[in-house]
């Protein structure tokens, strides 16, 4: 873990432009994955709509910045707040009506889709044209000429989310979330305030995804409903967890570290074959679900403990 961290910190000082962009993609996926990990990996509430939070984060900061001149740093915090509220809303509605499993996943998916359609069609929210972030190179406005600073900021975000998970997983909050995942009924009968904890997990998870959303907007300089609210963002939050190991601290990081370079590799090797990289994506999902359900990290841990399954 420490070696990984050190490598991640010195990486930008050796990498070229292209490698930097891959590094940012890895970290972005890691951030999304970790945010999903809180709500779905630890608390066991399977989300198929993390794009909703990501998009809310990206749009809140961007619209406030472009239309009202609010610094994206502040916009990011507001976006995180908005996404946390959205998480609580979705959670409250779903849990109020005792939705679980696939039906919960479908509700999260539907919320992301509704937001996509809403943003796509309402002029006040910039419609289908999306938002173009003007380039100014002022650090107070979350803009940097040097990609390395962007990279390091994102790295800091990933570290922050990971550290947060690391801390809660040793405290009451995290332990209770795992208990809820394992058996909600038992957790409830032991006096765990299930609803409160699940909502808290969704709020934190949503806020973390929103943070990544603001970063995305500032780094790429352009967002539209078709990119930030699509289900492919939601999938991008799930897949690193599946590959690396969901419900583990470093699983999603490992997952992101494996998937992104693999995709880049297949992209550059088979440049003119459309779709091959996504086939690989699909095969990875299938293979891991079938043969390595605990992900790479889970499998490593099991081997270390010498447990055969």
């Amino acid at each position: 873990m420490i070696v990984l961290l050190a490598a991640a910190v010195i990486f930008p000082f050796f990498a070229g432009r292209y490698m930097m962009s891959i590094g940012v993609s890895v970290l972005l996926m890691a951030a999304l994955g970790q945010s999903w990990n809180i709500m779905s990996g630890y608390a066991g509430q399977f989300s198929f709509g993390h794009a909703a939070f990501f998009g809310v984060g990206a749009y809140t900061s961007s619209i406030l910045y472009v239309d009202y001149g609010v610094s994206p740093w502040i916009g990011m915090l507001l976006g995180m707040g908005a996404a946390a509220l959205l998480g609580v809303l979705i959670g409250f509605l779903s849990f109020r009506y005792h939705l679980r499993g696939d039906f919960f996943a479908l509700v999260t998916l539907a919320f992301a889709e509704i937001l996509r359609v809403l943003f796509n069609n309402s002029a006040a929210l910039k419609g289908a044209e999306g938002v173009l972030i003007p380039y100014r190179d002022v650090w107070q406005e979350f803009q940097f000429r040097d990609d390395r600073i962007f990279y390091l900021i994102l790295l800091l975000m990933v570290i922050a989310i990971t550290a947060f998970i690391g801390v809660i997983s040793r405290r009451k909050f995290g332990v209770c979330l795992i208990a809820i995942k394992e058996s909600q009924g038992v957790a409830q009968s032991l006096g765990v305030p299930v609803l409160k904890y699940k909502l808290a997990a969704m709020a934190v998870s949503g806020a973390a995804a929103a943070m990544a959303g603001t970063f995305y907007a500032q780094y790429y300089g352009f967002i539209d409903p078709g990119t930030v609210f699509t289900s492919s963002i939601s999938v991008e939050a799930i897949v690193p967890c599946i590959i690396g190991g969901s419900g583990t601290l470093s699983g999603p990081l490992l997952g992101a570290l494996i998937i992104v370079p693999l995709q880049e590799l297949s992209n550059s090797l088979f440049e003119d074959v459309h779709g091959l990289n996504m086939v690989i994506y699909g095969v990875l999902i299938v293979v891991f679900i079938m043969f390595c359900r605990d992900g790479i990290y889970g499998a490593l841990v099991k081997r270390q403990k010498g447990v055969e399954t």
Partner: peptide, 28 residues
């Protein structure tokens, strides 16, 4: 069939993986 008794969302994800494969094989 071979992950019959895994937690429910695994099967959902498996079909998602299959969707990526089918769709992109068609694309290729």
């Amino acid at each position: 069939n071979s992950i019959d008794h895994a937690p429910a969302y695994n099967q959902l994800l498996l079909t998602l993986g299959v969707a990526y494969i089918l769709e992109n094989v068609l694309l290729m």
